[in-house]
Structures are given as structure tokens and as C-alpha cells.
């Protein structure tokens, strides 16, 4: 009962019809030579090996070695082996030794390998929710209007 109550709505894969249909499917890949200026919304998995200047909302996000993300990452599980400049919010966050993170990490379970570079606050998701409204519930809906504003900001900053 307690566990269910503490789980943010919409984080389970079952609640997302598109994600449920593609469970175990192949992830989207942002290759090493690709630069995305804008936001990514995904019901499934994303592997980033290139550069993303914008926010990422997905079920599972893997930031590979050599990848750069400048923006926020929201997901159910986030693995970071590359460089992230921005906010990370996910129930499960895994940080490999090659990672370089400049920004806060909000998590329920955080694993950091020895050697990882993290500069920012690490907070618990439930503590954060007590302070403010949960941001994860907006994860799957991905309101385009809201994201459009971020695109402009990201494009203007580059």
C-alpha cells in the first residue's frame, strides 16, 4: 500500500499504451554524429551517443560515453556514462565512472560508480514532491506547447 502510494502516477510502463506495445523493442538511437537542437519525447527507450541541446522525456534514457546533453532529463530510469549539463529526474539513476554531470539529480535510487564527476545536489524524489508538485506526471503526456517554449530557449542559447 505504502509503495503504491509513493509511486508517481504515469511512471509505470503499463499506464502508457504506446510504451506497452513496444516493450522490449529496439531503442531509438541518437548517433555520435547527430546533433539535436530541441526536445525529445519518447514512450520507449532512447540511447544518446551524440549531442542533444534540449529536454528529454522518456521511459528509459541512456546517455552513452562521449554523448553530450544540455538540458533536463526526465525518465523512469536514466543511465549516464557521458556528459549531462542539466537537471536529471528519475526513480532510478545510474551514473557510470565516465560520466560528467553538472546539475541536480532527483531520484529514488541512485547508483554512482567510483570516478564519476557530479557537481550538483542529489535529492530524493519523495522529498522533492513534498516541496512542490511532481514533474514526472507530465512525463508521458509531453505537452507540445510547453516544449515549444523550451526549443526556442535551447535554439537561442546555442
Amino acid at each position: 500500500m505504502f509503495t503504491q502510494g509513493s509511486k508517481p502516477p504515469g511512471t509505470e510502463a503499463q499506464t502508457d499504451p504506446a510504451g506497452a506495445g513496444r516493450r522490449g523493442g529496439e531503442p531509438s538511437v541518437i548517433s555520435a554524429e547527430l546533433k539535436v537542437i530541441g526536445d525529445l519525447h519518447c514512450a520507449g527507450d532512447i540511447q544518446i551517443k551524440g549531442t542533444v541541446e534540449g529536454d528529454i522525456k522518456s521511459r528509459s534514457v541512456t546517455v552513452g560515453e562521449g554523448a553530450h546533453v544540455q538540458g533536463s532529463i526526465y525518465g523512469d530510469s536514466v543511465h549516464v556514462s557521458g556528459s549531462v549539463k542539466g537537471y536529471i529526474e528519475a526513480p532510478t539513476v545510474t551514473v557510470a565512472k565516465t560520466a560528467k554531470i553538472l546539475g541536480d539529480i532527483v531520484h529514488e535510487s541512485l547508483a554512482v560508480e567510483a570516478g564519476a564527476f557530479i557537481e550538483g545536489q542529489c535529492r530524493r524524489l519523495d522529498t522533492k514532491k513534498a516541496d512542490e508538485k511532481p514533474g514526472v506526471s507530465a512525463l508521458k503526456t509531453g505537452a507540445p506547447g510547453e516544449a515549444g517554449a523550451t526549443v526556442k530557449r535551447a535554439a537561442g542559447g546555442s
Binding site: E26, E33, L34, G38, L40, G50
Partner: peptide, 28 residues
């Protein structure tokens, strides 16, 4: 050359521009 191959699967929406010197496959 996998490093040059980008795949946008059907569950992914990108609001913004994509720039690469490699191949892009858009299913999303």
C-alpha cells in the same frame, strides 16, 4: 559505421532540428 546511424523509433517525438553527417532513419 554505427556511429553515423541514427534511428528515431515510432515512439519518439523530436521537437527541434536534427543535424548530422551520417544517416537518419525516421520512424517516429
Amino acid at each position: 559505421g554505427r556511429a553515423r546511424h541514427t534511428v528515431i523509433r515510432d515512439d519518439l517525438t523530436i521537437i527541434g532540428d536534427l543535424l548530422t553527417d551520417g544517416h537518419i532513419e525516421v520512424d517516429g
